[in-house]
């Protein structure tokens, strides 16, 4: 713990930062103009529809692909030029891990244990058993779900300061998922680690995230503390006759078949809703994260 605090003092920059990050494949733009600072100790949940660019963003943040515009930094260093010292402080679990397919799980962990200075052997052994993972099977012979679980154990056992998980919930049953969330919560509490994870299971994010980022069509629409999503935003529904009196909204506007309109509104700096919300006949709904997401992303 003291060693980690000392590391923190030496650390020159935030765990992750992106400036004007853009990326594209074969003429199609996947990410555009992403500015993002992820503070030490935060747990950021990244949410977006399939194809919104979540995996690409995570990979670009870690320097695993070269952006077409802008740059990303990991602990203050350019992500594309990380040294081993920084690599040892990071753990990343992609959706479809491929690494070291020719080793058994036990051999792989033995090998990794020598690379990572803080490798936690007991945690690795116990969690493999609890998540019913065969230590003596070749990694390449495991099912995709098993591979991702092994990679999650690997990532946690390396005791990282920055943990990046791409859709970690997909490979886990509800019990193991809860266990992973608990592990994230406790480590954020005790070791002060920074976590970034993408998910489409919004309730996981609501439990454990301190901050949330909405990625939509390659743009970052929202990045704020998770409580703000419930306290600062709401949905205003206006009947057809009041449709023209809807406040101008940048976050989301939907017209319904009966002519009524719903918009996502935001409190101003004094905590007040726009004046239009006080008109008789309109309805103000405080939204859970999932509903807010649907309103914005549709």
């Amino acid at each position: 713990m003291n060693a980690m605090l000392k590391d923190a003092a030496d650390r020159p920059g935030p765990p992750l930062a992106a400036r004007d990050l853009g990326h594209g494949y074969e003429g199609a733009t996947v990410l555009r103009g992403i500015d993002l600072d992820i503070a030490a100790g935060s747990v950021l949940g990244l949410i977006g529809r399939n194809g919104a660019g979540k995996s690409t963003l995570l990979r670009a943040l870690l320097g695993l692909l070269e952006p077409t515009t802008g740059e990303t930094r990991v602990f203050g260093k350019p992500a594309l030029a990380m040294d081993d010292g920084i690599r040892q402080r990071i753990a990343y679990v992609p959706q479809q891990p491929e690494a070291l397919a020719w080793l058994t799980v036990a051999q792989m962990f033995d090998y990794l244990g020598r690379f990572y200075p803080r490798w936690n052997h007991a945690f690795a052994r116990d969690t493999l058993a609890r998540w019913q993972l065969p230590a003596n099977k070749l990694f390449g012979k495991l099912s995709p779900g098993e591979r991702q679980r092994v990679e999650l154990v690997r990532a946690l056992a390396s005791e990282p300061e920055l943990l990046v998980l791409d859709e970690p919930a997909a490979a886990l049953d509800p019990v193991a998922r809860r266990e992973l969330l608990r592990e994230i919560a406790l480590r954020a509490c005790e070791a002060g680690i920074t976590v970034v994870f993408s998910t489409h299971i919004v309730s996981d994010l609501e439990r454990v995230a301190s901050d949330i980022a909405f990625l939509h069509q390659g743009r970052l629409l929202l990045h704020c503390p998770v409580d703000d999503t419930k306290e600062r935003y709401a949905r205003l529904w206006l009947p057809a006759r009041l449709g023209p009196h809807a406040p101008a909204s940048t976050l989301g506007r939907r017209s319904h078949a009966d002519g009524s309109v719903s918009v996502v509104i935001e409190r101003d700096a004094h905590g007040r809703w726009p004046d239009e919300a006080a008109q008789p006949g309109v309805r103000l709904d405080v939204l859970g994260l999932e509903d807010l997401f649907v309103e914005i992303a549709e």
């Binding site: 608990r182 954020a188 454990v208 998770v226």
Partner: peptide, 11 residues
């Protein structure tokens, strides 16, 4: 509380 409910300790 954070461990039992798997929620963020800052909350």
């Amino acid at each position: 509380v954070a461990a039992f409910h798997a929620i963020n300790p800052m909350t």
